[in-house]
Design a protein around this nucleic acid. Structure first.
Length: 135
DNA sequence: GCCAACGTTGGC
DNA sequence: GCCAACGTTGGC
């Protein structure tokens, strides 16, 4: 099983909305590297749900419940999306500040490539972040 | 509101 | 195919 991190601006789609909707299509990704990551996701993979811009913290965990399919919001049919299901909220959201302050997380794609909205997380990093989040 | 990083576009 | 101009993302 692989781990990922997906970003959303809470102003456009927040963790609270994800919790309320339970299953949500993850659409609107328009970046090739992010698309590659979406396509590599498999059923049962887990992903951190990160609030970018306002918030700047990991707030929850979702599970991939549908693998990559054509993004309905893309008229050209060029981009893909997935479906994610809310799994659990982090008892203690992990802030970007905390992540940056931890040398063990310096290789995290979120830090190295701050603009990438869908990025992989290694098993090791996943464990560290879960502990920091109180899970 | 500013700016760095980075992707995209278009002229050559 | 190169590169300058420009737009967008996201942290601060």
């Amino acid at each position: 099983m692989a781990y990922w991190l997906i970003k959303s601006e809470p102003d456009s789609f927040s963790w609270q909305e994800q919790l309320a909707n339970i299953v949500e299509p993850w659409t609107g990704v328009r970046n090739h590297q992010a698309k590659k990551n979406l396509a590599a996701m498999r059923l049962g993979d887990k992903a951190f749900f990160y609030h970018s811009n306002t918030g700047r913290e990991i707030v929850g965990i979702v599970e991939i419940v549908k693998e990559a399919y054509p993004d309905p919001t893309d008229e050209m049919g060029k981009w893909v999306c997935i479906d994610v299901k809310a799994c659990s909220s982090l008892p203690h959201p992990v802030t970007l500040q905390q992540i940056k302050a931890n040398p063990a997380l310096s290789e995290l794609a979120l830090i190295r490539q701050s603009r990438l909205s869908v990025s992989p997380v290694s098993d090791k990093h996943w464990d560290i972040l879960c502990k920091m989040g109180g899970i």
